[in-house]
Write a protein that binds this DNA or RNA. Structure first.
Length: 887
DNA sequence: AGCCAAACGTA
DNA sequence: CGTACGTTTGGCTG
């Protein structure tokens, strides 16, 4: 509401403002990690939020053009014809902006055959008639004609969209010296270059204003055209049709038939959940905060999905049970046969209690270790009675720390949410309540010393969990449920146990390696400084750029966002073009410091038990792999000499005789062979010949024995690159061969292994149709950008889609193998343990005398995890440490 | 303190 | 212009 007490209608020309924002904000500063430009969206939303805060409109709408064509282009084909191609970086931003506005519950309006300005005109007229104060926001000068004592125009200035100039009738008179309704007559005379509408030659704003002021209107002016002398008078008489045409075209249509009127545009609460999702995709941070702040201030729907919020008051009352009451409750709940939702309460990592929910019956259990009256609970936890959990791996680990086994998990809401949307970040129970139930879970404000909302009882949490699971069961596709049940839920305890077991390291080796690398690095740094005559921070790309390109005058390398690349490839190029000892020293220094840091991280991560316990993230990837953090044990160096020494520091622990490593050989290529059914590739894997030698022989038309190392290298790069969507350009770059040769190599490859190409194409085509890819076992990955008009975005999605079923199937197979191996180890009573998973490799600790039995189990289970058209080959090695056990 | 970009390790 | 990850550092912003 304005001061006048009248409702305020804010109507915005979305396209013109977004376009202004596009040119006002730097393109490169607003790009998501997958290449989507967002500067126009950001600028628009920022401006829009400012308007909402400042003008406090009661009614809001944003109008968009549908296309460049309208009734105006039909009348005058050259209308707006001078406008060049829309910049590619702008394409695609408008639909995303519309999505963002939809999430904010702002009405967007389009109308076939009309421009956004016509919609604005219509709503402005209707609004004024219905007693609104109307604010029109547009970057198109033609909208000046809409201004009157009830309609004000907000027009962006030259600097962009952050500041809008306010044009009421008085301001228009001051600026142009005419009434707003006369503006289009001025414009008709002057013409509008940007719309490709030439005006009367030699007539500018000054002349036009003078004429219109004198004659009152364009019509009257033309009627008296013969009174005007001089060249301009002659021009006016000769070119009067231009002015008449311009006037027809710049007259905004104010009676467009619209599906909504001003009163329908009342501001509605934002859908906070949707806003978060859209803004997360756009990678807006500060803007998200601004929106949510406004949303909160205005009592938005904070529930997440726009449904009616259900307060926690609806949750059933919680009873706290102990002793026989608890045992009786469990007996009764189990007897129904229905799963019980279980929330493990351990806010700081150590067990404090449990929340249980059976139907609407919610029970809280306080945990005090060693209490005898929890026997029934412990038996229930360890037994097979069905349970629903959230973050099952954490629950498993926390219970295991108390010596409590957990079994019978039939659903994990975290895993289910991830399987449904593997790209989304891991959601807490509270977030799942928002995103799945559309409700908000009352949580205490962590910033408040004395929160006014009490912490949620874990029992109430369990009640929410049960409802989340019910919703997930409804919406998860059957193949996805199958992956959840037969793979993910079963591998969770295996992963949890690997974390708990950890891997032993030889601290002494790490410490001396650390010191050694430190000295090496320091020496290299000194030499590097001597070469350039001063000290620089060798770890600062910025300072290195100064040295290389300014001081040493080297040729510029690949451009990065912040300057020029100093990465290893760029430095190698520089060494060729402009040799200098500094370059080699820098590379060596980088290598040494990086490895030193890695070694130090490992040292620090070693626990009191002399072992490193990584944390695996079961829901951290888009493809189905697991990832490793804190520390990441999936990227320990292996290729270099120092890499081997680092791996040698990973050893068998006390009471174990050594380590055993087992890895799948070329698993992704084998999956490609299977999925494509390519006879040649299948033969390659069944022939017993070295894969790359076999393929090389086919491609180069020689005998396998005559495949040279160079040929093999090329074929190997080609083969591996295939599953990643490698292009001829990329191949030439990697192999440092001409693009013609790379192209020929690919042609020759596909001439022999055509089914591979057909398969890869079909994956993308199928994904375009279905919107997702699927692994052999039914794991799906959705793709949104496969039909994007943005080429970068689309091609990125295509390569990811191409890779997803291959990488994902490999991940599935490895998980199944882990499950099988863990089962066998347990059932056969072996003391050997699984320690690490590195995507296609498993590392085990061998208990004394178990090497052969362990190897047999591992070979059998890994080799039979899937039945493919080609054998799954497993390579096994043993030794006192990780390096020695490798092969 | 929090975030980003660059660089680089693994499969 | 090759997929999937995690960590560290420097440097900027608040």
């Amino acid at each position: 509401m304005t001061d006048s007490g009248k409702p305020t209608l804010l109507i915005v020309d979305g396209h013109s403002l977004a376009f202004r924002a596009f040119y006002a904000l730097p393109i490169d500063s607003f790009v998501t990690h997958d290449g989507q430009h967002t500067n126009a969206i950001h600028g628009f939303i920022s401006m829009f939020l400012g308007l909402l805060a400042k003008e406090k409109p009661t009614h809001v709408a944003v109008a968009f053009d549908i296309s460049r064509f309208s009734f105006r282009t039909r009348e005058y084909a050259e209308y707006k014809g001078t406008r060049g191609e829309t910049p590619p970086e702008f394409v695609g931003q408008v639909p995303l902006l519309q999505e963002a506005l939809a999430a904010m519950n702002v009405t967007t309006i389009t109308k076939e055959d009309f421009e956004a300005d016509d919609i604005l005109a219509t709503l402005a007229r209707q609004g004024a008639e219905q007693g609104f104060d109307v604010l029109v926001v547009s970057g198109d000068r033609d909208t000046i004609q809409l201004v009157n004592d009830r309609v004000t125009l907000l027009y962006p200035n030259a600097r962009g969209v952050s500041e809008l100039k306010r044009y009421d009738a008085e301001a228009v008179r001051e600026r142009y010296g005419i009434d707003p309704h006369q503006y289009p007559e001025i414009a008709a005379l002057v013409g509008e270059t940007s719309d490709n509408l030439p005006g009367i030659d030699k007539v500018g704003e000054k002349t036009a204003v003078k004429w219109i002021t004198q004659y009152g209107s364009l019509e009257n002016l033309l009627a008296h055209a013969d009174e005007i002398g001089g060249v301009v008078g002659a021009n006016l008489r000769e070119q009067r049709e231009r002015a008449e045409r311009n006037r027809r075209l710049n007259r905004l249509v104010d009676d467009v038939e619209l599906p909504v009127g001003p009163t329908d545009l009342e501001r509605r609460p934002m859908d906070v959940g949707a806003v978060k999702r859209v803004f997360e995709r756009l990678q807006f941070r500060t803007l998200t905060e601004r929106v949510l702040k406004i949303a909160a201030a205005e009592g938005a729907d904070m529930s997440g999905e726009g449904e009616a919020p259900t307060a926690a008051a609806d949750a059933p009352p919680v009873r706290t049970l102990v002793d026989e009451e608890l045992a009786a409750w469990l007996r009764a709940a189990v007897a129904t046969g229905e799963p019980i939702a279980l929330v493990v309460d351990a806010p700081l990592g150590s067990l404090e209690g449990f929340g249980l929910a059976a139907g609407t019956d919610t029970v809280h259990v306080n945990w005090a270790a060693g209490r005898p009256d929890y026997v029934a609970l412990e038996q229930w936890l360890a037994g097979g009675d069905p349970k629903l959990v959230v973050d099952g791996k954490r629950a498993t680990s926390i219970l295991a720390a108390q010596g409590l086994p957990l079994a019978g998990v039939v659903w994990d809401a975290s895993l289910a949410a991830w399987l449904e949307r593997p790209g989304s970040s891991t959601q807490s129970l509270a977030e799942l309540v928002g995103s799945i139930l559309g409700e908000s879970l009352p949580e205490p404000d962590p910033n408040q010393l004395v929160p006014d909302t009490a912490a949620l009882s874990p029992a109430t949490g369990a009640w929410y969990l049960a409802r989340i699971v019910a919703a997930q069961r409804e919406r998860l596709a059957p193949p996805t449920q199958s992956v959840l049940t037969s793979i993910e839920l079963r591998v969770t305890p295996v992963i949890a146990e690997m974390e708990r077991t950890g891997i032993a390291v030889d601290r002494g080796q790490l410490t001396s390696l650390n010191a050694e690398l430190g000295e090496t690095a320091a020496g290299l740094a000194e030499q590097a400084y001597a070469e350039i005559g001063r000290e620089v921070n060798l770890g600062s790309p910025k300072q290195l750029q100064q040295v290389l390109f300014d001081e040493l005058g080297m040729p510029k390398t690949r451009a990065t966002k912040t300057g020029y690349s100093t990465d290893a490839a760029a430095l190698a190029d520089l060494q060729e073009a402009h040799p200098h000892p500094f370059l080699g020293l820098l590379l060596q220094h980088r290598d040494a410091t990086k490895l030193r840091q890695m070694v130090e991280t490992l040292e620090k991560a070693t626990g009191a038990d002399g072992r490193i316990h990584t944390t695996y993230d079961q829901t951290g990837t888009t493809t189905g792999r697991i990832s490793s953090t804190d520390p990441n044990l999936q990227n320990i160096p292996v290729r270099t000499e120092v890499g081997h020494r680092i791996r040698a520091a990973f050893v068998a622990g006390e009471g174990y005789e050594g380590l055993l490593t087992a890895d799948y050989s070329q698993i992704e290529m084998r999956i490609m062979a299977h999925l494509s059914g390519d006879a040649g590739l299948i033969e390659a894997f069944t022939s017993g010949e070295d894969l790359h030698r076999f393929v090389g022989a086919r491609i180069f038309g020689v005998a396998p024995a005559d495949v040279t190392p160079e040929m093999r290298t090329k074929v190997k790069a080609m083969s591996y690159g295939l599953a990643y969507g490698l292009s001829a350009f990329g191949l030439s770059k990697q192999l440092r061969i001409s693009s013609a040769e790379a192209k020929q190599l690919m042609t020759d490859y596909f001439a022999r292994f055509g089914a591979v190409r057909d398969y890869l194409r079909s994956v993308v085509a199928q994904a375009k149709e279905d919107g997702y890819t699927e692994t052999i076992f039914g794991r799906r990955r959705p793709f949104a950008d496969l039909n994007s008009p943005n080429r970068v975005l689309r091609e990125n999605a295509e390569r990811a889609a191409l890779n997803a079923p291959i990488q994902g199937t490999a991940a599935d197979i490895m998980k199944l193998a882990m499950i099988g191996v863990a089962d066998d180890l347990r059932e056969q009573g072996l003391a050997s343990r699984m320690l690490l998973q590195v995507h296609d490799e498993l590392v085990f600790e061998v208990a004394p005398g178990e090497r052969e039995r362990l190897e047999a189990i591992v070979r059998a289970r890994m080799g039979s995890a899937a039945e493919l058209a080609v054998p799954l080959e497993v390579q096994v090695g043993t030794g006192p440490n990780w390096d020695a056990a490798a092969h």
